[in-house]
């Protein structure tokens, strides 16, 4: 079983309750996360990437949201079938989560050490003293200098980068197998960003941690991830190894995203953009959800939803007219 994926998501559907019924905002998302793998989940705001990860934790923000289909398997466990008490053991114990804004995601009136120790005590039932000793050890692992003294500090006494390290320490206190990182570097400046990415890579290597990395920054993805999943309008547009996706994107949306990166345009020319706006939940286009903005769209795209088909080894795309590997160079 060790060769199997740590986390396996199949046809995950999250819907929002509207007067006329359930409307899917995450629609049939499937992916596998292998041990020690970093998966980049990329997409525009509102593409459903954060919602997908909230669904993995079964922490959907709001009573009108619910998982309406699919399965989430963590090792042997089916998370969608667990009751709330069992799910609490999974959260923080087996799946950790870190967020974009560390200053607001740490309790302002509790010391960093106490916050880490609380998690350890909660999940492992360690004694107060033992939990604090472990907390200091975790702080050391995430690169906080003088961890014994800093464990007694409050979040406001930390700098932005240190706070992000502290939040990683809280999330990793109980040695989860999977870490969900929801735009962990977006709020940091570039040098600190690089340090945090380095830290996540180190933790992956030393602990065999699997990471789902949510971001809209393709630059960050290409530095860190092993594979990339691109979401558009609540569906997966493309999924594959990083090299394949960056070098030879098949889905026109992915290709468009890559061309929007500052490095892709020649000096002195305008950056390319993808025209139009991403669709909203209540106004999803028929057929392929990208067709109103797609340069390659044909009649079929308006009427039929493209299947998520394999275009290469381990590389899938949902497009009727995928871009060929050769055409990319010709542009």
């Amino acid at each position: 079983m060790s060769a199997g994926p740590v986390l396996s998501v199949r046809d995950l559907t999250v819907s929002v309750a509207r007067d006329e019924g359930w409307r899917p905002i995450v629609d049939g998302v499937s992916f596998d996360l292998q041990a020690g793998q970093i998966l980049g989940l990329v997409g525009e705001s509102g593409s459903g990437k954060s919602m997908t990860c909230r669904a993995l934790m079964r922490l959907l923000p709001g009573a009108r949201l619910a998982i309406t289909g699919g399965s989430i398997r963590l090792g042997e466990e089916e998370l969608t079938a667990l009751d709330e008490a069992a799910m609490r053991k999974v959260r923080g114990g087996q799946i950790g989560m870190i967020f974009q804004n560390p200053s607001s995601h740490l309790d302002p009136v509790m010391t960093i050490g106490a916050q880490i120790a609380e998690t350890i005590r909660f999940h492992q039932g360690a004694s107060r003293r033992e939990a604090m000793r472990q907390a200091i050890e975790v702080l050391r692992q995430v690169g906080i200098p003088d961890p014994t003294a800093r464990a007694g500090s409050y979040p406001h006494e930390f700098s932005g980068g240190m706070r992000q390290r502290a939040m990683i320490a809280v999330a990793l206190a109980c040695q989860p197998k999977v870490l969900i990182a929801d735009e962990p570097t977006t709020a940091l400046d570039v040098t600190v960003q690089a340090q945090i990415l380095r830290l996540l890579l180190d933790l992956r290597d030393s602990k065999g941690l699997s990471i789902i990395f949510i971001t809209h920054d393709l630059g960050v993805v290409s530095q860190t991830c092993d594979s990339i999943a691109v979401m558009y309008g609540g569906r997966l547009a493309e999924l594959g190894p990083k090299r394949d996706i960056i070098r030879a994107a098949r889905h026109p949306y992915t290709a468009g995203l890559i061309r929007c990166q500052p490095g892709a345009a020649a000096t002195g020319t305008y950056l390319e953009t993808i025209p139009g706006q991403p669709p909203t939940v209540d106004a999803m286009p028929s057929g392929c959800r990208f067709h109103p903005r797609c340069p390659r769209a044909g009649e079929t795209c308006r009427e039929h939803q493209p299947a998520f088909i394999s275009v290469d080894l381990g590389h899938r795309a949902a497009c009727h007219f995928p871009e060929g590997p050769g055409q990319e160079a010709a542009r």
Binding site: M57, H105, D107
Partner: peptide, 26 residues
Amino acid sequence: HADFAVAARSLGFGHMRIMGRHLLPN
């Protein structure tokens, strides 16, 4: 609805703990 309450949920804490240990002191 504060972010640290969401973060506390993501650590597996129950409602009583979040209310008593994290929200009340704040």
